[in-house]
Amino acid sequence: MKKAFIIFCLLFLFNSTVLVHGEIENHIFQSKTVSFKGVDNNWEVSHKMTLVGTDILFETTIKYKGTYDKDLAKSPSRYLIKYSHGIIGSEAFLLNKSNEFHSKKRECGGCEFLDKENEVFYEIYWKDKISTVILKRVDQ
């Protein structure tokens, strides 16, 4: 009796997995991406958001257009991301020797997926200055 029950459970799980697998692949794990890019006199910025199921992942690249500045590599700057309905988040960053910062793709807890926005704003706080870079949506 135990063997029959185990076989029944395995068959049920296998069949359920096969049937649900197609549903998951088509709906839950389907990803959607939006990208934004912008530039001002000092900075080039790109921001990418990916929606995977209900998780929102994002990654940012910030490049300083000036010559190498050791203060920007040793003393953290900060960016703040704004859009028409509020603020997404903020993070401290340091530039590498190429005058760039590349964030790893990470989860954006509690933020909104910006697929309806045409632009976002990056405020960069650096060396007692504030630069606002307007990022326009880029179609991929």
Rank of each mutant, 00 (worst) to 15 (best):
M49C: 04
N15F: 14
Y68M: 04
F101T: 05
P76Y: 05
F101I: 02
K105Q: 08
V39N: 15
Y125N: 12
H85P: 00
M1R: 05
E112K: 11
I56M: 09
Y68H: 12
F58R: 05
I7A: 12
G109P: 05
F58C: 09
I88C: 01
N118L: 04
Q140R: 14
G110H: 04
K32T: 11
L51C: 01
I130A: 01
T60D: 15
I124D: 08
D71W: 07
E107K: 13
F36W: 05
S31W: 02
R137N: 03
Y64G: 11
T50D: 11
D115W: 06
Q140D: 14
L10Q: 08
E123L: 04
H47R: 02
T132R: 10
K129N: 12
V39S: 15
K104G: 14
L94H: 07
M1Y: 07
S31F: 07
V138L: 09
I124S: 06
N118H: 09
G110S: 07
V39Y: 10
A73C: 12
R78K: 10
K2N: 13
S46W: 00
F121H: 13
G109F: 13
E25L: 12
N26S: 14
K48H: 10
E112G: 00
I24A: 12
V133P: 06
G22Q: 12
L72G: 00
E23M: 13
I134A: 02
K63F: 05
L72S: 00
F8Y: 15
K63M: 12
K129I: 03
L11K: 04
E44R: 03
S103F: 00
E117G: 13
M1P: 03
R78N: 03
K129V: 02
K2T: 07
L57C: 05
I7E: 02
D71I: 13
N15G: 14
E112A: 09
W43I: 08
P76N: 06
L72K: 02
T54C: 02
K48A: 11
L13G: 02
R137F: 01
